[in-house]
Design a protein around this nucleic acid. Structure first.
Length: 870
DNA sequence: GAAGTGGATATACC
DNA sequence: ACTGGTATATCCACTTC
């Protein structure tokens, strides 16, 4: 049979000793399709130089004899071929060694240790990755497939019968129709449709967006620890679907309300006591709750089951309670239960339905760019959806009253609604990331940037006829980690002061452009200089790179082009789309920048410290050269960090500045390019605390539209209390807007006065510090660690990553340390006026007023008399 | 006992 | 363990005079 097909979830199984891939996807009619396929299984043995043909034949003969019997599985070498390949961009002769089972490649490779063989490679990719490369059946691409329909077939042990899919097809052929198909407009709500605009010349960029069927979920429990308490309710949200399943019967004022005893007969949406919302469905007990949940997932049959922090909480909790209740959590299309990866970081996998933990994708793709101080569902929703969680005061289920239950249901439902909407927002990027990285979305949505970079490389090696490099061994990793650190970015020391008429330029994808321009990578690194090369001083030596384009820089070029496209889209977008487009453009910028980090990352297959160090060195040189040009042309540089330059345009006009930029760009090498970030009306730089030199990474700017950009100041740091942050923010804004300190001084005096009169609400005085590791791994005893320990004693949820909140109280003991005066927000105690004045308010504005020669401590002194006495 | 210093820690910038 | 280096700033333990 023939059908269109979009691969979504990948899995594999063994049948009669061989590996088979099982791909779950959709077709255009929204039918769920399972594709079974196989591929050649092989690895590479790279031969040493100048091995005679005879010798090669002998080696092949010996290899062909290899047989293995591991764990009752018989594997043998089935075929050996000689190929001309590249390894790290160098032409090599290599043997392609075919075997029965992918899992045995490592063992076979270990047996091939003849002296003529230089290296063994390509056995550590994972079968799914290997399959995708081998057959070119890429996740979330659009295919036309042809194959044999398995219908109650005994093939593969009757796999099609156990699978809840519309078609199960043994693949014969497939054709990618993404690139040639025209865009499809559809109002259909069935999954599997593709929508979106065409255009764009880059092949990587999708011209259609696949719209999956999604189901967001969220659970509410009595305890935070996995499986410790009972699950009270589960909320589910899909397209035109809202449901809260619970076994807690809201009790009315009359506890003997007969309605409470008829739970089993209460149907969906039935009214209960005149208050029951229609989306609430009441079941008998926790076991039935779990069964009902499984039933809904089966009926709705989504492509994605989406949660928020669900790898770490919801799914493992469900599993634990299912075990306790002896309910089978058979969510998988094959009836299997969720599987969890071992290790510290849990990941929950469901066969055939992709379980997505949104938090993970947000962390890698957006968090660096976001304004939110935590990645809580509430804050992230606020930033991207302009919506928040519903109010609900947690208490144990036994203490919840009737009306409160109603609120609780609504609260839970709304969490799922937010999760659903967030998924919709991020889906285009997840889609794009998956297609670029070419790995299953289950992994791409969880992986960090370094893994993304590596996936991208691995899946593009064939274009360069390259044999993949292996993962580093533990020994290699530890030796890499002990490597001396290399010199990084250049940061210009600013002169403290307030400036006017400012422009900012920055290099687009700075490090990425450097890598591309100077061809910096493991495979282009030259131990000895060749005639034609790029070279620079790095790692206390001169390092050389070939001018013949390497695969890594070539690939990176594509990422940079894609990013440029997104950035262009952003510029011509409507304001209501801005947040997400900005995030997207930024996500690809991060990906491009991660390539630099990748080459210096100890876990990387293509680790090359020389390339990483040279990248930083070339980048330093680029920016310093640009600064020279700028200063030479009638401007004056006042600040610069890594890839941006801030300068005074002096008497020049904006158009002269832009003209200058154009000319400057023409002189830049390769794909290096500067762009205008913005023009600014005014800006301020301050000294370091207690010093006289200008502080780096700390400044505030205001553009002509009055938009303020604040970097590094306490205003943007979450480990300062809100009073200090807001005071500083106000002061900076007033000064930037007016160019004078007068008003802001009055303002600070007002705040100090209120603080002294104890008129400041405690909530503005809370200091928040994150617990970055398990509590007993700390050597120091800081306020937040002490508070965390106190919280543990009170059985409050504290773990790695928790944001610890506290405030500083007064103490009779004058020598009491800050940590001894730190109290939980819920604890009684008067705030310490002196502490907040001297350790929060004054430090936050001191350096700013110093720019105007104002000593804020003196200005805020309790009595001016004191000053006069001197 | 005040002052200075350095380690541990957190957070931001790019 | 799950990109990199640069930089500021706090609190606290310790040393020094």
């Amino acid at each position: 049979m023939k059908t269109q097909f979009i691969p979504i979830d990948y899995d594999y199984f063994d049948f009669q000793g061989r590996n088979y891939i099982k791909i779950i996807g959709r077709n255009e009619q929204g039918k769920r399709v399972c594709v079974i396929d196989e591929c050649d299984v092989y690895f590479w043995a790279v031969l040493k130089d100048k091995i005679s043909q005879d010798n090669i034949k002998k080696i092949i003969k010996r290899i062909l004899k290899i047989k293995l019997d591991v764990k009752g599985r018989k594997t043998k070498v089935e075929k050996v071929e000689l190929h001309d390949k590249n390894f790290l961009s160098k032409p090599v002769k290599a043997l392609k060694i075919f075997a029965t089972n992918y899992k045995d490649l490592h063992d076979i490779a270990s047996q091939i240790d003849m002296k003529e063989i230089e290296k063994r490679r390509g056995y550590d990719l994972g079968f799914i990755t290997h399959y995708i490369i081998e057959k070119n059946l890429i996740p979330l691409n659009n295919y036309e497939i042809e194959g044999e329909l398995l219908n109650n077939s005994t093939e593969f042990g009757g796999i099609d019968m156990a699978l809840d899919v519309d078609f199960c097809i043994k693949l014969k052929s497939h054709k990618n129709i993404d690139k040639i198909s025209k865009q499809v407009h559809s109002n259909s709500t069935s999954p599997g449709r593709m929508v979106g605009g065409g255009g764009g010349t880059n092949e990587l960029a999708s011209n259609k967006l696949f719209i999956p069927k999604i189901l967001a979920y969220d659970i509410e429990t009595d305890e935070f620890q996995i499986g410790k308490g009972e699950i009270l309710m589960i909320s589910l949200v899909g397209e035109n679907f809202k449901k809260v399943i619970t076994w807690k019967k809201p009790k009315g004022k009359d506890d003997n309300n007969p309605m409470n005893k008829t739970s089993k007969t209460i149907g969906v949406g039935q009214d209960l006591g005149g208050h029951q919302a229609s989306y609430v469905e009441i079941v008998e007990d926790e076991a039935e709750l779990l069964e009902k949940f499984v039933e809904y997932v089966k009926t709705l049959s989504p492509d994605f089951l989406v949660g928020y922090f669900s790898d770490g909480f919801d799914l493992p909790y469900l599993k634990a309670r299912a075990e306790k209740n002896r309910v089978k959590l058979s969510l998988g299309l094959d009836g299997s239960q969720p599987r969890f990866s071992k290790g510290i970081m849990l990941t929950g996998k469901i066969n055939g339905i992709v379980h997505i933990d949104l938090l993970k994708f947000i962390r890698t793709a957006y968090s660096q760019y976001m304004q939110s101080e935590t990645l809580s569902l509430n804050e992230v929703s606020k930033e991207f959806l302009n919506d928040t969680k519903k109010e609900f005061q947690f208490k144990h289920s036994s203490k919840i009253t009737h009306d409160e239950w109603e609120n609780y249901f609504e609260y839970s439902l709304h969490d799922s609604i937010l999760t659903y909407k967030l998924f919709e927002k991020f889906w285009p990027d997840m889609f794009e990331f998956t297609r670029v990285m070419q790995e299953p979305i289950f992994d791409v949505s969880r992986n960090g940037m370094s893994t993304n970079v590596e996936d991208y490389i691995i899946h593009n090696l064939n274009r360069f006829n390259e044999i993949p490099e292996k993962r580093p061994t533990h020994e290699e990793i530890s030796s890499r980690r002990n490597q001396e650190r290399f010199e990084g970015a250049f940061v210009f020391e600013p002169t403290p002061g307030i400036y006017e008429n400012i422009a900012m330029f920055d290099f687009t994808s700075s490090y990425g452009s450097v890598i591309v321009t100077y061809n910096l990578s493991k495979s282009t690194y030259l131990e000895k200089p060749s005639k034609e090369n790029y070279n620079i001083e790095a790692l206390n030596k001169k390092v050389y790179f070939s001018k013949k384009p390497g695969f890594f820089p070539e690939m990176l070029k594509e990422i940079i082009m894609l990013r440029k496209k997104f950035k262009k889209e952003l510029k011509s977008s409507k304001p209501d789309n801005e947040t997400i487009l900005k995030a997207r453009s930024n996500a690809f910028k991060l990906l491009a920048n991660a390539s630099y980090g990748y080459q210096g990352f100890f876990g990387a297959r293509y680790y090359c410290l020389e390339a990483a160090a040279a990248t930083a060195a070339f980048a330093r040189k680029s920016i310093q050269d640009a600064i020279k040009e700028i200063d030479k042309s009638g401007f004056k540089t006042i600040y610069s960090d890594t890839d941006s330059i801030v300068f005074l345009i002096n008497k020049k006009t904006k158009s002269q500045t832009l003209e200058f930029l154009k000319n400057l760009n023409q002189k830049l090498p390769g794909i290096m390019e500067l762009e205008l970030e913005d023009f600014f009306k005014r800006g301020i730089w301050v000294t370091t605390r207690g010093g006289t030199t200008g502080a780096k990474k700390k400044y505030a700017l205001i553009n002509e539209k009055g938009k303020v950009k604040i970097r590094g100041f306490e205003t943007v740091r979450r480990d300062w209390c809100n009073l200090a942050r807001e005071t500083q923010n106000k002061v900076l804004r007033m000064i930037l807007e007016e160019g004078s300190y007068k008003e802001s001084l009055k303002y600070v005096k007002e705040i100090a006065k209120k603080l002294r009169k104890r008129e400041i609400d405690k909530k503005y005085l809370i200091i928040k510090t994150q617990l970055k590791r398990p509590i007993d791994e700390y050597k120091a005893n800081t306020p937040h660690i002490l508070i965390a320990k106190k919280m543990l004693k009170k059985e409050m949820p504290v773990s790695m990553g928790t944001l610890i909140e506290y405030f500083i109280t007064e103490s009779k003991n004058k020598k009491a340390l800050v940590r001894d005066r730190a109290m939980l927000p819920t604890e009684p105690g008067e705030y310490d006026i002196k502490y907040y004045l001297e350790h929060q308010i004054i430090p936050s504005v001191e350096n700013i007023f110093q720019v105007f020669d104002i000593n804020i401590s003196e200005e805020l002194a309790e009595s001016k008399q004191k000053r006069l006495e001197f």
